[in-house]
């Protein structure tokens, strides 16, 4: 899937079976670090519903857990990689 928006939109609406790959002792244990949540935030930025401000940049920079989820995505998406690229792109653009 070439358009990041399409991928973020699919992931944001997915019920998130990949989250099992986040270890129980990882920190933080919050929704915001799951790939689906990161996609939900990125989608909102692309659609103009959230500004790419410091809280958003901070949230989207916490991709360590999402990278662990990549092998568990049933649909083969690399959401964490796409989020990293999205943040880098937006940071340069600012």
């Amino acid at each position: 899937m070439s358009d990041p928006r399409d991928m973020f939109r699919l992931c944001a609406c997915c019920p998130s079976p990949c989250r099992r790959a986040i270890p129980a002792d990882a920190s933080p244990q919050i929704e915001t670090v799951t790939p689906s949540a990161l996609s939900m935030i990125a989608l909102a930025v692309i659609d103009g519903a959230l500004d790419f401000d410091e809280p958003v940049r901070r949230s989207l920079s916490r991709t360590a857990a999402a990278h662990l989820c990549r092998p568990a995505c049933p649909y083969g998406y690399d959401i964490a990689g796409a989020i990293d690229a999205f943040v880098a792109d937006r940071t340069i653009a600012r």
Partner: peptide, 15 residues
């Protein structure tokens, strides 16, 4: 660290 108040977190927990 265990109280979340920023807008991205609130958006994620709204659904």
């Amino acid at each position: 660290a265990h109280v979340l108040t920023e807008m991205p977190d609130l958006w994620v927990y709204s659904r």
